[in-house]
Design a protein around this nucleic acid. Structure first.
Lengths: 150, 150
DNA sequence: AGCAAGTGCTTGTATTTTGCAACTGGTTGC
DNA sequence: GCAACCAGTTGCAAAATACAAGCACTTGCT
């Protein structure tokens, strides 16, 4: 089930998916904070509501940006991972960060991390790293989420 | 008059401003479609509502991302221009486009334009061009809207 | 064996934002 | 002097969001 498409413009088509206050923060958690579980993302400092998080994760699964697997250590635990499509969102997050470092009051706690994310940075290394962590080959999703199930 | 800040994270700080369905489309209109007037933006194919457009333009003026000047040709006409801060959003739009070209059903009408926007493209030339068109030196905003920040 | 804490959510409700359509006060061209 | 155009504003319904509980389990501890 595709979300509503407003036009064939590439900017618009991107925003149709992640043009909201929360979606890219979930991606950020997966990419940079090493958060892989629902409760961890709930605990991020922006305090996303549990129903919104559930809704967005469902959408990201539907879109093939994220996959869900079982955690062997706990039958109720789910591990969320980025797909290649999700990892490819990194340059967008990087450019947003870059702009914010220039124009917004970024917290000092983040400034240390700023260097590697600077313009012309080595995103490729970072993406390679993300692929290693998220894209374990042969690791098909074990928690099926039939597109558009209830 | 700062909008609500959820955290000091650079991604979050960016989304606090343009993390919605419409704001970046307005920037796109100013950047790529040569639209400089209210009515022109209203006419874009995504059909933004007039109250939303008015609201977002007000916010963008407050944030110093856009400035408003009088159109000498018509006393009621206003010209909207990007500031440097606004022009610096170009890399974000480019990365969004790039991702959409790869993963979304971009309309054929846009595919011709795709080439110059490809990865590693020469955004600098485009930004130089935008500065020429939007940043006319000594052209201070003639319609004051009391920006409350830098 | 029993219980508290933890798991990914769902449900219900109040508040906020959005979408839609009509309308406003003024300007301009003919 | 009048229709078309200008940048918006206003009012209302619908949708999205935030907040707080609750649910059906599983796990670790005793």
């Amino acid at each position: 089930m595709d979300e509503k498409i407003r036009s064939g413009c590439p900017v618009s088509l991107g925003l149709d998916i992640f043009g909201d206050r929360w979606t890219l923060l979930i991606i950020r958690d997966l990419m940079f904070s090493g958060k892989r579980h629902y409760r961890e993302m709930l605990g991020s400092e922006e305090h996303i509501s549990t129903n919104i998080l559930a809704d967005r994760l469902k959408m990201l699964l539907d879109e093939g940006i994220v996959v869900k697997t079982e955690d062997p250590s706990h039958k109720q635990k789910a591990i969320y991972s980025l797909t290649e499509k999700g990892i490819d969102l990194l340059p967008i997050l990087m450019q947003i960060s870059s702009w914010s470092y220039k124009y917004r009051p970024v917290d000092e706690a983040y400034v240390d991390n700023a260097a590697p994310y600077e313009q012309g940075g080595d995103w490729d290394d970072l993406m390679t790293e993300l692929r290693k962590v998220h894209l374990r080959p042969g690791d098909a999703p074990t928690v099926s989420n039939g597109p558009s199930n209830t």
